[in-house]
């Protein structure tokens, strides 16, 4: 059985493109939403600059409910909502929607952890200089935590690549879908290996970029 590489190469590149597209959109959307939720989680804690017991409790509850749900279950559970938002329960956009929901809560926790570790003395100093909460968040909390935040987001991106491989199950396309459909299911082990190799290289590249960016921010 000869592998028809002349047919598969273009398909492989198309799949890579789909993966990059899904990962990029998910990163931007859930990255921003997760940043906002994470900021609220950390600043509404007792003693925080926006301390609010009720808001904090509700946010924690929502995050704690969604975060442990396995991604593939989330795809199924969110079905009706996905259809309401994207018009379909299958396809790339449906996949992106579910990935955003899956990623946002993890991102919120990563952001919360990093913001909470900003030195309270520094917050106090800028408060003493007359800064109000919004200014403190934008100009102090996020910049002071930027290095670890970049590393946290890098870690999350790799999780998103992982999720993107699974949305193949609902016709989302991408490298995971390619490996399963063109390789595993038709017993072409070499195709599966090549697709896996591309995913590994993609992850390596993203990790490398994240590390470099973090190093720059941290001025090492």
């Amino acid at each position: 059985m000869n592998t028809p590489w002349e047919v598969l190469w273009p398909l492989l590149f198309e799949s890579l493109g789909q993966t990059l597209y899904m990962v990029a959109i998910t990163l931007v959307v859930s990255g921003l939403a997760g940043l906002v939720v994470g900021i609220l989680l950390s600043t509404t804690r007792p003693g925080g600059i926006l301390a609010h017991r009720g808001v904090n409790a509700v946010l924690n509850l929502v995050v704690n409910v969604f975060r442990p749900v396995p991604f593939i279950i989330l795809v199924a559970v969110l079905g009706p909502l996905t259809k309401a938002v994207t018009g379909s329960i299958i396809g790339t956009n449906a996949g992106i929607f579910v990935m955003c929901i899956g990623a946002v809560f993890s991102i919120a926790r990563v952001v919360e952890q990093n913001l909470v570790s900003v030195d309270p003395g520094v917050i106090e100093a800028v408060q003493a200089a007359g800064a109000r909460p919004l200014r403190i968040i934008v100009a102090v909390l996020v910049p002071e935590a930027l290095g670890p935040l970049v590393l946290g987001y890098t870690y999350i991106v790799i999780g998103i690549v992982d999720m993107s491989a699974m949305v193949g199950a609902i016709g989302g396309g991408g490298l995971g879908d390619f490996a399963l459909v063109r390789g595993y299911q038709v017993f072409r082990w070499d195709v599966t290996v090549v697709a896996t190799g591309v995913i590994i290289m993609l992850v390596q590249l993203l990790q490398h970029l994240g590390n470099r960016l973090a190093r720059r921010v941290l001025r090492y």
């Binding site: 030195d119 003395g121 520094v122 106090e124 100093a125 800028v126 102090v140 910049p143 002071e144 930027l146």
Partner: peptide
């Protein structure tokens, strides 16, 4: 402050 509390960014 004792610990200076400068913005490291």
């Amino acid at each position: 402050f004792q610990q200076f509390n400068l913005l490291r960014s």
